[in-house]
């Protein structure tokens, strides 16, 4: 069984929600990325996404844009993602996924990428610039290699665009909250809840919420209507302090690792807070 499916099924049995943690691979270095994965899992992350940097990350905000740029400036190459996953896999049992854009995968070769990700111990992919109409070849290859390709849904998604979810055999659905579910605009929060209800009419797969989730109280709210939350920028900001780009003094690696674990723990505990 794919690790993603097993993880969600275990969580559901235990009555728990999933904390999905994101960090950008190679920011600030491959070694620290691997240590970050371990630290996040130690704090309670249930799944980890590694961002494979792309020069033009149009679905990402400024924090992750900067992280991608730092990783590329430091000389990141696509093939390194597999080494990082292989190393992380020796230390953690949680599902490991790659989040990227279509072009780096296309240039590596779709089949080759899926093969190498699977061999390295990866479990799935998230490609936000690949709507379901365009995903044919990647879905085929991912499935052939035992990987899950995540389906994206947005608050703007129309019911007709959810019908394809019926055909999904595993993995999870990633629901994007445009301006942050807990933003001041309550109508957006309401729209996200509506969309999740529609999703649940199409599929039994778990649904996680991402974009704009960065605090335990956000997690607490998400937990009332979804199966998990994706947190990215909050972790990437901690790693950013290692680059010396922020105003603060550059902390040592042990401090960063400790902060990541602590942040993951607080967020995971957020699910048990009353909202």
């Amino acid at each position: 069984m794919n690790r993603i499916d097993a993880t969600f099924s275990n969580l559901s049995r235990a009555g728990e929600k999933a904390l999905v943690a994101y960090v950008t691979a190679g920011d600030p270095s491959p070694d620290l990325t691997v240590n970050a994965v371990t630290a996040l899992v130690a704090g309670g992350a249930d799944l980890v996404e590694l961002g494979l940097p792309f020069s033009d990350p149009l679905a990402d905000g400024p924090v992750i844009q900067r992280a991608s740029q730092r990783a590329l400036t430091a000389g990141f190459r696509t093939s390194e993602i597999f080494t990082m996953i292989e190393r992380a896999r020796r230390q953690v049992a949680v599902p490991l996924m790659v989040m990227s854009y279509y072009n780096p995968l296309m240039q590596y070769g779709i089949r080759l990428f899926c093969r190498d990700l699977s061999r390295a111990g990866g479990d799935g992919l998230l490609i936000p610039d690949l709507p379901y109409e365009e995903e044919g070849e990647l879905r085929e290859e991912a499935e052939a290699h035992g990987l899950r390709l995540t389906a994206f849904v947005a608050p703007t998604t129309t019911p007709a665009r959810l019908e394809h979810l019926k055909d999904l055999e595993g993995g999870f659905v990633y629901c994007v909250s445009v301006t942050g579910v807990t933003g001041t605009d309550q109508t957006i929060s309401k729209r996200v809840r509506d969309v999740i209800r529609w999703i649940k009419e199409e599929t039994l797969l778990p649904v996680v919420i991402g974009f704009g989730v960065s605090r335990p109280k956000h997690v607490a709210e998400v937990g009332t209507f979804a199966d998990g939350a994706v947190v990215g920028s909050a972790f990437v900001r901690i790693l950013e302090t290692a680059s010396g780009e922020s105003q603060l003094a550059v902390p040592d690696e042990a401090t960063i690792v400790k902060e990541l674990t602590q942040m993951a723990r607080e967020l995971k505990e957020g699910f048990t807070m009353s909202f």
């Binding site: 149009l58 679905a59 279509y102 936000p128 610039d129 690949l130 709507p131 109409e133 365009e134 994206f152 849904v153 947005a154 608050p155 703007t156 998604t157 129309t158 665009r161 994007v176 445009v178």
Partner: peptide, 13 residues
Amino acid sequence: GRYVPETVMPALE
């Protein structure tokens, strides 16, 4: 083709 986030797909349609 259309290689864009789901968020804008309904707008393109």
